[in-house]
Simulated scan of single mutants.
Amino acid sequence: MQLTHLFENVSMLKIITSILDLLIVWYVIYLLINAIKGTKAIQLLKGIFFILIGKTVSDFLGLTTTSRIFQIVLEWGFLAIIVIFQPELRRALEQLGRGSLFKRGNSNSKLDKAKLTEAMVKSVQYMAKRRIGALIVFEKETGLQDYIETGIPIHADISSELLINIFIPNTPLHDGAMIIQGDKIATAASYLPLSDSAKIQKSLGTRHRAAVGISEVSDAFTIVVSEETGAISVTYNGGLRKDVSIEVFEALLTEHWFNTEAVKKGESTNARE
């Protein structure tokens, strides 16, 4: 009887430790996802997930060659992951040391779409009339944390007065890109990758090339106000729309910022065409 009771206790202990083991693994995965969320690495993680699915399907269907290719990719993938995710792994360890990895971000922000749109349109229109150069990037699904870290943290509410003041010439923050996350100004004076496309007109400056560059590596929507002409341009999906009217700009802004369907006006000029 005592032996049976002992076996029951051992079995119960094994169940508890197994559950605890599973919870720890899931929590580590959760922390890992939190660490890379908001960076380009999350897109690479999706790619790895699809490779695993492809390997499973190939094995199930008996596709020998395809399955072998996937196997080689997975075998060498470990080293590739260390190289590709090096910045994210470093950031995760730094956050772990500061204890910030365990803090939850504030996701209770409520977007006042009309007020935000009005502030953005008013500031862009003001800067266009006075030929104040500006470069504003809106983060969408692809995280821009790598580029946010190159700038000066702002973390401020959006207002037309603040937007205009940041881009006033000869001020410390006017040079570089402003990055918008949700309804907040995340950073100013950030560095963006420059596009190497030969299709971009040589008359266009660094702001336009940076705007196209960020649209080539992410799904971000970017506004450019030309310092030379005051013209308003936007970039998205690797394409450049130049000299858009304020009405077209507002429609595109609403569509891309809030994922609201808008009526397309004007014609696009794709930087890759």
Rank of each mutant, 00 (worst) to 15 (best):
L74K: 05
V57M: 15
G77I: 10
L44A: 14
P87N: 05
I81Q: 02
L31P: 02
L101K: 05
Y126N: 12
A35M: 03
I72T: 14
Q125F: 00
S123C: 09
E94P: 02
V124P: 04
I51C: 07
P169F: 03
K129T: 09
A134V: 05
I164Q: 12
I82C: 08
A134P: 06
L162N: 12
A119E: 13
E94G: 00
A119K: 04
F78D: 11
V73R: 14
T171P: 06
E118N: 13
K140P: 00
L45Y: 06
K40H: 04
I51M: 12
Q145T: 00
N34T: 04
A92I: 02
I136C: 06
L32D: 00
G97D: 04
T171M: 11
T65K: 14
K110N: 08
Q125Y: 00
N165W: 11
K55N: 14
N106D: 10
L144V: 06
Q95I: 08
Q43I: 12
I69T: 09
F49Q: 15
K40M: 09
E118F: 08
K115H: 06
L61M: 12
G105E: 15
I148V: 11
S100D: 05
F50C: 15
S109W: 07
G77M: 10
T66C: 01
I33F: 10
I69M: 12
L116E: 06
K103N: 07
K115Y: 06
K129C: 08
E94D: 13
T66V: 10
A35I: 04
L96T: 05
F102I: 11
T150I: 07
T171W: 09
F85G: 04
N108D: 11
S58D: 12
F49P: 15
S58K: 05
E118K: 08
T171E: 12
S160N: 06
G77V: 12
N34I: 00
I166S: 03
D59R: 14
E149A: 13
G143I: 00
L163F: 12
I152H: 03
L96D: 00
L79V: 10
A134M: 09
Q125P: 03
L163M: 15
A41S: 01
E88W: 05
F85D: 01
K115T: 11
G62H: 07
S67T: 02
N165G: 14
I158E: 04
N34H: 06
F70Q: 06
N165S: 15
R90C: 02
Q43N: 05
F70P: 01
